[in-house]
């Protein structure tokens, strides 16, 4: 069977697909890639459906031994990609032969890189998805991160690999992970539980990413966001991107592996199209929040989806 063998797992590498919708009402988060756009582009580059499973690599990537010829593409955080020690381009497909050593290095910018392989990684789906949920030990390879000696089974490519290398992502669609990104938010569902000064402080920022951040939540530090009457609410559902503000007045952006419900006030929600940017902000790097309305967010979403449709040429 075609496979990739894990020589070195890197810092935190998991199998992800688009995620596991439909189980939040049982307390199971969707998981899936922290940066959905970069993940989808990796799949499209190699000719996979968006739903195919690939790897999410965090800060320091894995080293893999190629067991059979395959077509791969790396996107996302700027991990240098080498084949047998020679650097190869990112955001474009690369053809590999049996015996090659593929390495994703240390990212100087961005946090999460994605590796797609033509045919996809074929671990058994759990609750309809191959996405790894680490805290719940669900999906992926035994619900855990990759380790040395793992074998990643690959699906049969739907067609020959010939000519597969010619695709690329248009330059203007390759994001920059440097600087201080602006992240668009819709205020609510509990914005009324904060003072006007608190909301202003939140929108002025900037907020610095803390190292305790993970796929569950991005913990931030910056201007204190003051509550009107305490930080507790009657527990309710936490949307993707929900921004909890706990007792210390600091925000936590809840991400793909979030708890399904929670009892802290949520001042705002990061828009779906900017979640990936939050997932790429490094510890110590800063971001700012910008308020938009729900209708503006839907207009932006339409533009962003259209952009994604034409990103691979």
């Amino acid at each position: 069977m075609s496979a990739l063998a894990v020589l070195d797992p890197g810092l935190l590498t998991t199998i992800q697909d688009l995620g596991r919708p439909g189980y939040l009402r049982y307390g199971v988060p969707p998981s899936g890639p922290a940066d959905r756009e970069a993940f989808v582009l990796a799949n499209r580059l190699v000719g996979n459906p968006d739903t195919a499973a690939g790897l999410e690599c965090t800060l320091v990537g894995p080293t893999l031994e190629v067991r059979t010829a395959c077509l791969i593409a790396a996107t996302g955080a700027e991990m240098p990609v080498t084949v047998n020690g020679s650097e190869v381009p990112r955001w474009t497909p690369v053809r590999l032969k049996a015996g090659d050593t593929l390495r994703l290095g240390t990212a100087p910018r961005g946090v999460r890189a994605y590796l797609a392989v033509f045919g996809g990684i074929q671990v058994p789906p759990v609750l309809g998805s191959r996405a790894t949920y680490l805290r719940g030990q669900l999906g992926g390879l035994e619900g855990r991160q990759l380790r040395k000696g793992d074998l990643l089974p690959l699906g049969q490519p739907a067609r020959s690999l010939d000519g597969g290398e010619r695709h690329r992502v248009r330059a203007e669609c390759i994001p920059s992970y440097a600087g201080e990104p602006q992240v668009r938010v819709v205020l609510g569902p509990q914005a009324d539980r904060f003072t006007p000064e608190g909301v202003r402080a939140f929108l002025d920022g900037p907020y610095q990413m803390l190292p305790q951040s993970d796929r569950m939540g991005a913990r931030l530090m910056g201007p204190r966001i003051t509550h009107t009457r305490g930080h507790d609410i009657i527990s309710d559902g936490i949307p993707l991107g929900g921004i909890q503000v706990v007792g210390d007045g600091q925000p936590i952006v809840l991400l793909v592996d979030r708890q399904s419900t929670g009892g802290y006030t949520k001042i705002a929600t990061v828009c779906s199209f900017d979640i990936g940017r939050v997932g790429q902000v490094r510890p110590g790097q800063r971001l700012r929040f910008r308020r938009i309305s729900v209708n503006e967010a839907h207009a932006v979403l339409r533009i962003e989806r259209a952009r994604l449709e034409t990103a691979v040429v």
Partner: peptide, 22 residues
């Protein structure tokens, strides 16, 4: 409508805005 999450006193309704507007 994609998914729903009931809690004590609220229902969170996930939707696809490209299929149904606010």
């Amino acid at each position: 409508v994609v998914e729903t999450v009931p809690t004590f006193r609220a229902l969170l309704v996930y939707y696809d805005p490209l299929l149904i507007g606010w």
